[in-house]
């Protein structure tokens, strides 16, 4: 090969960066909103406080609306970030992400009905945390690294809550509240919002 000039070197660097950017953009959903996760975290903390003030930890009248509000908030903030960062909203990457998360979340919905009917409500916090963690960990294959750590942490919290159901509400506050806020702040600081 001919000896490369300074321009060749700069151009090669820029070309490799372009290839990397394109591959990332084609294979992963990077518009995860840190602010969205922080908002979801605060909703989780509020729900945990309401449940603590109420009669039982896994009160579906509190946690089902919480799940609905959280999903809506996540959608609104992620779409906003995708628009701001000019990332495709409904790309192949996010379709795959939704598909790999869906089985764990669907299993969680069915188990919620089954456990609540069977009088095993004390297992709900651990099951919710563990299956949400399983879904997020799987989805993280198509997203940023911080999400994988969040998923694994949820799995661990879920395991702890299943083994120690008495601490279920505290662990839900730590997960659905604290973890979302912490990972959200990390994304805000490192990935710009």
């Amino acid at each position: 090969m001919t000896i490369p000039t300074h321009e060749d070197r700069e151009s090669a660097k820029e070309t490799l960066a372009y290839i990397r950017r394109t591959m990332e953009s084609a294979s992963s959903f990077t518009a995860v909103s840190g602010w969205g996760l922080i908002m979801v975290g605060f909703v989780g903390l509020l729900a945990a406080w309401l449940a603590w003030s109420g009669t039982h930890d896994a009160d579906l009248r509190i946690w089902l609306p919480t799940a609905g509000i959280s999903i809506a908030l996540a959608c609104i903030f992620n779409i906003r970030k995708a628009k701001q960062t000019d990332v495709p909203i409904w790309s192949g990457a996010i379709r795959r992400l939704v598909w790999v998360m869906a089985p764990a979340l669907a299993a969680g919905a069915v188990l919620t009905v089954a456990l609540a009917r069977g009088g095993s409500e004390h297992l709900l916090p651990g099951m919710w945390l563990a299956l949400y963690g399983a879904g997020v960990t799987a989805g993280a294959e198509f997203s940023i690294r911080a999400i994988r750590w969040m998923g694994v942490s949820f799995l661990l919290l879920g395991a702890a809550a299943l083994l120690e159901p008495g601490a279920g509400l505290l662990l839900m506050a730590a997960g659905f509240g604290g973890l979302h806020v912490v990972i959200g702040l990390d994304i805000v600081m490192r990935h710009g919002g």
């Binding site: 090969m1 490369p4 321009e7 060749d8 151009s11 070309t15 372009y18 290839i19 394109t22 294979s27």
Partner: peptide, 28 residues
């Protein structure tokens, strides 16, 4: 790349959009 080095590159995927297509498809 605009020097002698560039003459040895595969012109077909050296062009920016074509390089983008090939890179994006290589990722999935």
């Amino acid at each position: 790349v605009g020097s002698l080095v560039s003459e040895t590159l595969d012109r077909l995927i050296h062009e920016r959009i074509r390089l983008g297509i090939v890179s994006a498809l290589a990722a999935g």
